[in-house]
């Protein structure tokens, strides 16, 4: 057993230290974070998601959209996210408290989607982008999310409608106690 106990005890410590310091420390600070009004008496934010959007999140995960899209707006000075028009303020931890699985993402082949719902003009615009992305876009067409209607046009099917509802629900355009919107 020469040195084995020492090695295992030492390695255990090296795993336990960051687990305690970072993860449990972070949990102590943010573990109980919930919705809150931006100002006293205001509505609780972030707003509850519509049921269809909750289904749409599953479609978003199924298709692996997170491989190309992030959902986090960095503060000014830490990237140009706000200058790109992806958000009016940086994302804060409270924005994600309702999400059962946070899809922050790690790579941007396409633009950030944290605030996509606030800048998308209409359902039709989102549907058009999903069914036939603009030339030059690296995004593939998601034809299987659409079905031909009687008039020959493409209409989102059940999953397509759910994904559109989810994308519309992605909004961080409200004031939060930690990040006020500039008037």
């Amino acid at each position: 057993m020469k040195n084995l106990n020492l090695i295992l005890a030492g390695v255990f410590f090296t795993v336990a230290a960051p687990f305690g310091g970072l993860l449990l420390g972070g949990h102590a600070q943010l573990g109980a974070l919930g919705r809150a009004p931006a100002e006293e008496g205001g509505p609780l934010l972030p707003a509850l998601e519509p049921g269809l959007a909750i289904q749409g999140r599953q479609v978003y995960l199924q298709l692996g959209c997170v491989a190309c899209h992030t959902q986090q707006v960095r503060p000014a000075g830490q990237g140009s996210d706000i200058a790109q028009g992806w958000g009016a303020r940086p994302s804060v931890a409270r924005d994600y408290v309702l999400q059962p699985q946070v899809a922050l993402g790690n790579r941007r082949v396409g633009p950030d989607l944290a605030n996509y719902g606030a800048r998308a003009k209409s359902d039709a615009e989102i549907a058009a982008h999903l069914s036939a992305p603009a030339a030059g876009s690296a995004m593939p067409a998601y034809a299987f999310l659409f079905s031909p209607a009687k008039d020959g046009s493409l209409q989102p099917n059940e999953r397509g409608a759910a994904l559109i509802a989810y994308l519309k629900s992605l909004r961080q355009d409200y004031s939060s106690p930690e990040a006020k919107l500039k008037q």
């Binding site: 993860l23 949990h27 943010l30 109980a32 974070l33 931890a93 059962p100 946070v102 922050l104």
Partner: peptide
Amino acid sequence: CPTNGVLQALV
């Protein structure tokens, strides 16, 4: 047993 919000990204 998912932790709260962005803590998942930390883990």
